[in-house]
Design a protein around this nucleic acid. Sequence first.
RNA 1: GGGGGUGUAGCUCAGUUGGUUAGAGCGAUCGCCUGUCACGCGAUAGGUCGCGGGUUCGAGUCCCGUCACUCCCGCCA
Length: 595
Amino acid sequence: MNKFRTHTCGELTKKFTKKDITLSGWINKKRDHGNLLFIDLRDHYGITQCVIDKENKFFKELEKLQLETVIKINGKVIERTKETINKDLLTGEIEVVIEKFEIVGRTKELPLPVFSDQEYSEEIRLKYRFLDLRRKQIHNNIILRSKVISFIRKEMEKMNFLEFQTPILTSSSPEGARDFLVPSRLNPGKFYALPQAPQQFKQLIMISGFDKYFQIAPCFRDEDARADRSPGEFYQLDLEMSFVEQEDVFSVIENLFLKLFKEFSNKKLASEKFPRIKYSEAIEKYGTDKPDLRNPLIISNITEIFTRDDVKFDIFKKEVSKGKVVKAIITNNTKDKPRSFFDNIDNWAKKEGSGGLAYFTFIEENNKIVGKGPVGKFFSSEACEKILKLTNSKIGDSIFMSCGQKKDVERILSLARNKIAEDLNLISNDIFSFCWIIDYPMYELDEKTKKIKFSHNPFSMPQGDIKDIDFSKPLEMKAYQYDIVCNGIELSSGAIRNHIPELMYKLFEIAGYKKKDVDSKFSGMINALSYGAPPHGGIAPGIDRIVMLLANEANIREVTMFPMNQNAQDLMMSAPSEVSENQLKELQLSIIKKK
RNA sequence: GGGGGUGUAGCUCAGUUGGUUAGAGCGAUCGCCUGUCACGCGAUAGGUCGCGGGUUCGAGUCCCGUCACUCCCGCCA
């Protein structure tokens, strides 16, 4: 109890009847009957209906107040009559008869209404984020985020993890995303980088003997935004453990996630043990390493069909003879779908930047299987039968085919899997379907330079017995590198780390780094590994995306309190901004104007 | 860097084939209304149709350019 309130706007019920109380809050809504005025007073905790009539000397003044004015009222709690009870409010059985009031905070005319279910442009929401955050749904999302983080902390502590902070000003690393740079005044011409993740620090923590570490860590990457990717900064549950194998990391995360998702959502979990899917299998079946397993559609490779003489689909045949591949998605029992269903998907694929999807439906005619649809006539009955076998499908099903470079076909079909499943309503929205993607390749071929580069984290441990690793075929090497995916959203990557310096040099050498490059770029790490490093590994699930899943939001800004827009600008704080000549001078920087 | 969508009142939107003075709901201001909970009723104010150029007798509408926001591709070990 203080001078502003004796209670909150969410706690008064029948048992407070006849009590004299003080409430403070925002005017959420007014209903003015001329001689009788209802005011819905709102604070963080709820809404309380307050009432005043013309007999009260404050009536006229109160009647004129704008919505979102902050007021303090003194009054008496009374029970509502049966007919006037509002079941939608926690406080709906009572109301407060206003005796006197004070204005605590005035408002200008609102740029956006707070009390409304309308949607508003992002621009105005972000500029006036403090108003936007008063609105129910996003307010609740932010509360959820807080509770999720607090829950994670408690669970991590229960599992004997210790929380440590790591530096925000650190050094630029050559691998990975673009760094955010911070000029150093005391070391002119040199720059700090904001950490893309506390990767090296958490490994150093293990080498320092702390055994189990976690942190709700801010990560900074100067890359372009997406709906599920904030520009600039995001948070990870960063964790690392010593003397562990891959499965030890998995069981920590499975334990945490099962509890977390049961605690904060009513959605069902597809399985308590998260399936392990090999990277190569994920690419083969889903065209992506972040498959949405709620989606039953599977991709099949039917390239061999186009080497047959009884297939006359020359456009594809010509491409296949040049080394291109053909992959397909089968939809079950879609023979009666209208032409528009198919054309719609074909047109969608063209818009996505492919040559479209060729399609037809398998039907039976005179005891023979034939293809019905624009390109069906190019396939003989025997060829159709072979396709059914290859794709594990049956008469009445339809096939969508894409032909091209392997990577392009995988990309378009992975998107088509989602598109087609959405159109057919195959994805259940009340399930969380987790999986681990495992056995990532250690290296991949850079498309542009044709050189071998790390496919993921250069610090990952290659699989197999270290003595027997065949370094001559680097593209066949697998790493103890893994991702966790839920409903098609990549929540995290992790790995068992390479703690053996000699092995590290060898692996970097394959990717084109000389020993002295490694020594200079990763001096802290490589040096530390040389003084008795424990085997260790970890993972770093994205907090923002976890909260997105739990809040059932498709956009990361809906679970971020003060996000930047797509161009990495904070419209509320006007960041980034220009700085004074003096500041630049101190840093020995000058701006080169474009053109 | 590239592609798509959007841009009309403070907010959310409508605006036909290019045709008189650009409309509605919410909000604001003023008035009426004692049981509403999206209260109701009446009135008033409020517009650089994102910006610039072009076509036309005439442009919110068509064309070109440009800007902003957003979604996607590239990028994100």
